[in-house]
């Protein structure tokens, strides 16, 4: 008898992703769907997709979902979670959505310690609108609105979301990961699971930042895009756990 070792996650719909070849969204979607399946929380989870490339996330997740206006995901998720405290609520946001137009909603949801999870897809560029500068575009990086490269005095500096939010007492868990290798993908999946676990244990705000390739707007091949994350982007945005107040993590810290 053949043993199934790989298949479509149960809670991804049978639709074909509209994402570009080599894009990280499809992997991130898959990981979230897998974790939801493994934790058995599909029936009690509500997702909030953003404006941006993942605007159609509800076409892929087989979950109850409500579309947020650009950047407002954490405010919407706050309303959902406060009304239904026993449901899992997550918002899925890009870098422009979270760190530019929605920085206030993100910052204050985190500061209130809203018991929600944010999946933050950082690809250092505005994807859907055609490759403009994002708040996380790194210095010297060329985009359609920084044609000569991002200039620190003219365009400002890349925003480091995990470093920023981890300062807030309301944040329970903040980790940055990436998707550039099977090992990294596995790490990311663990982080997603931990974030949901934080929510289950009512520890407060959890965020998983995922450095995600955008070959189309970076004008690279998918492989070069992954290399660029490993060699350039992750220097600017180090892969690390920035905050973890789960009991296990606290025990480890004490032991050290």
């Amino acid at each position: 008898m053949a043993k199934v070792i790989f298949q479509r996650p149960k809670y991804l719909k049978e639709n074909v992703f509209h994402y570009c070849p080599g894009c990280g969204h499809s992997i991130a979607h898959r990981l979230i769907a897998e974790v939801i399946e493994e934790m058995g929380i599909r029936g009690i989870t509500i997702g909030v997709p953003p404006a941006g490339c993942a605007v159609l996330a509800y076409n892929y997740f087989d979950l109850d979902m409500i579309e947020a206006q650009h950047g407002r995901g954490p405010a919407l998720a706050t309303g959902l979670k406060r009304t239904l405290p026993d449901r899992f609520v997550f918002s899925y946001q890009g870098d422009g959505d979270l760190a530019a137009i929605g920085i206030a909603e993100s910052f204050h949801a985190a500061n209130r310690g809203e018991n929600i999870t944010v999946f933050f897809i950082n690809n250092a560029v505005y994807g859907m609108t055609g490759g403009q500068m994002a708040p996380t575009t790194i210095l010297e990086q060329r985009t359609t609105t920084t044609p000569a490269g991002r200039h620190k005095t003219l365009d400002g500096y890349p925003v480091k979301v995990c470093e920023l939010l981890s300062q807030l007492p309301g944040v329970a868990y903040a980790q940055r990961c990436t998707l550039t290798s099977p090992a990294q993908v596995n790490k990311t999946k663990k982080a997603i699971r931990k974030a949901f676990q934080c929510q289950k244990d009512a520890l407060g705000f959890s965020i998983v930042e995922i450095l995600s390739p955008c070959p189309t707007n970076w004008k690279m091949s998918p492989i070069d895009a992954c290399k660029w994350i490993d060699e350039v982007m992750s220097k600017e945005f180090p892969l690390d756990v920035f905050k973890d107040i789960t009991p296990a993590a606290q025990k480890n810290t004490e032991a050290v």
Binding site: A75, G79, L80, T83, A104
Partner: peptide
């Protein structure tokens, strides 16, 4: 802005 989106979430719920 946040307030109107909070009530949107709660209304949906």
């Amino acid at each position: 802005v946040a307030a109107i989106h909070m009530i949107t979430g709660a209304a949906a719920a």
